[in-house]
Structure formats: C-alpha cells, structure tokens
Design a protein around this nucleic acid. Structure first.
Lengths: 181, 181
DNA sequence: AGTAATCATGTAATTAATTACATGTTTTTG
DNA sequence: CAAAAACATGTAATTAATTACATGATTACT
C-alpha cells in the first residue's frame, strides 16, 4: 500500500493524551481504538523512530528494574501543530472496505442459494459486534461526566453502535426480501 | 500493505459477468464498483498477469484496427472455483477506515470549537454522497426487472444509501448534542 | 524457586497499493 | 483534416502494512 499514513496522526493523538511507550501505543489497538483501526507493533516502532527524526515527537529513556530500557515518547510542539492541522483538513472517505458488501455485489441472482447462509453468518457477526459495543459503551461511559471527559471517544462509540444497528436492520430487511422472492 | 488481495476476487467477479480487457476492468472502478472500492490500472495489469500465471484466468488476443492489440480476459474453471470458495468463506470486517471518525475520537472536549466546522464539512460530503447514490439507484434500478437482473448490486447500493442516511442522522444528532452543551 | 504471562523493542521478508513515468492507437469532434 | 479525447497496456519508484523472526527483562502465580 501507499496510503495516507493515518497511523502517524493516531500516534500523535494518543501521545497528546499522555506520554507513553511504543508498547503502550500498540496496546491501544487491542482495546478502545482497536474498535475501528488496526496496527501492530512492527509498524509502530519504526514509525515512532521516523516521527522522532521528523521532530514530531521525542522520547525520554527510562530504566526499569536492573536493565530494562523503556522509551517514553511525548509530543513536541511541531507534533501538536501537525496534529491540529490534520484535524482541520478534509477527511478522506475512500477507505471503507467491507468484504461482505463486496461479495454481495457479485450475487446477481436473487434466488441464489448462497445468499441465505452468507446473510446468516453476517447477522451473527454483527449481532455479536453490536452487543460488544453496547457493553463497551456502558463500561466506559456509565454517566455524563465520563462522556464529557472523553467526548470524541463516546461519539465514535455511539456511531459504531448506530452503524451496527443499521447494518443489522438492513440484513433483516434483506432476509425478508429474499424470502418472498 | 499486505492485505487480503480482495482485488483478485473483484476481477474474477467482473470477468464472470463478461469477458473484458484490463482497461474495461479498470473503468469499472470509475462507475458501479467504484462506489465502494478503488483500484487503478497500474495495479490491475500486473495482477491480471499473475492471475493468468495461476490459471485463474486466460486471455484471447484481439487486433483492433491496424495495430492495436487488446487482451480479452476470461475466467477459467479454476477461477470459477476460487471465486465461489471466496464467496463462501468468512468475510473480513476489519477494513472500515473512516478518517472522520478517527479525528472525532481525538476531540475530548465537548466544547471544542473544532467540532462544529468538522461536522458541517462532513454533513456536506454525506449529503452530496447520499444524493449521488439515490440518483445512481434510480438510474440503474428503475424497475423490479432490473433489480432481479443485478440483485447483488442493487442490495449493495441500497445498503450504501441506508448507511449514508444513518450517517447523516448521526451527524445531525451530534449537532443537537453539542448545541445544548 | 521455577515457570508462565506480560512487558518491551526491534528487524526482515513479503505483499499491496499509490503515484508517476512511458508509449502508442483509435475514435470522435470541430 | 487536425486536434483532442478516449482507448489500451505496461513499468518504476515509493510507501504502507502484514507476518514472521528474534531477543531479552520483569512480574505474577503456584
């Protein structure tokens, strides 16, 4: 790929909240931000180096225990600026790649016997996903105070929930459509 | 990137409908399939060669006019099998990358003055997109007959429209939320 | 005290995808 | 008929991202 390197901005955004190590940053993709973006440590470590060379971030070496060396990264003011500029820039919307939709596109026969099992599988996935997201929201935002503290995150989660509901409804509608056909 | 090479299956799916050239295939991404996937000719031509080497497709050379050489690609039975196996396989859902959502995630202050212009921009984009998609649907599927002929495509378009409506509603809700805050 | 899990950081090989470079033919339009 | 637009096919350079390889330290558990 030769994408837009959005990971750079994610790392900046995460470092803005608190200084942390590459390991910590990588972990974020297992939890909160992982809900809608992926990255692994082998991509993160080299990128952090590059970003430091570009003076967007810097690090402080910390020794833990006897020998273990940690690198606490933090944002520079140049990084701040770059990040803010990104927030204000127009967003690229061409990245939505839903493989199921893609498959569906190629089913030209409404009576195809492939359709029903495909939809069932998808329903299962999205139901689970919806349930998971709702749980996440309750866990992370049980009250208004928490929402105000991490507003963007709450909006994104809410959006994800909305999206899953829409998806589920659409799948259910589809089942009805092919049932009568 | 090292993605799942879904383009391979797209090309197979398109060739299944009719034999065509790499140029024709590339053009598909400017119209119908371009609604939700991107690819350019410099990616397509080499991939077609590789797929032919793998015996998923084959081509027939056609001379147009005096000199122009076209390559009409078509699916082999092995290609058919590969394509069908893909349709039946579980779909990878990790590819949804909405940059706006990503930005939103990092706005932790509900009173941030960045929020409103960001949303306005996004609303404009999605309203246009919605309008475009609705037009597309009317153009391509004016009656039930057309829908039955290209069922999957109609479902996908309908889904895209649904999604845009959901997105617009969510954005509108968000505006209300930040207005009162 | 031993061991498993987690913390912590990197590199190498491969593949996917974008942008730019490069060339020539045929058809349409003024 | 000349020019522009569209047809047609490729390669090169670069960047992004995944998977696998590689190593070692610290903490938690039994």
């Amino acid at each position: 790929m030769a994408q837009k390197n959005r990971l750079k901005y994610i790392l900046l955004g995460l470092l803005k909240k608190q200084r942390q190590t590459g390991y910590d940053l990588a972990k974020s993709f297992d939890s909160d931000i992982g809900e809608f973006w992926t990255a692994n440590h082998s991509q993160i470590y080299p990128l952090l180096k590059r970003m430091e060379a570009d003076h967007l971030i810097a690090h402080e070496a910390i020794t833990v225990g006897q020998k273990l060396q940690k690198k606490q990264y933090y944002m520079t003011s140049a990084g701040q600026q770059t990040f803010n500029a990104w927030l204000k820039s127009p967003s690229d919307l061409t990245g939505s790649h839903d493989e199921f939709i893609l498959k569906l596109f190629f089913i030209d026969d409404p009576k195809s016997e492939l359709l029903r099992p495909m939809i069932t599988m998808q329903q299962q996935y999205h139901d689970e996903k919806l349930h998971h997201l709702e749980q996440q929201f309750q866990e992370k935002f049980p009250n208004q105070k928490r929402i105000d503290q991490d507003f963007g995150h709450s909006l994104v989660l809410r959006h994800a929930i909305d999206r899953e509901r829409g998806y589920s409804n659409w799948l259910a509608e589809m089942v009805k459509t092919i049932k009568t056909e």
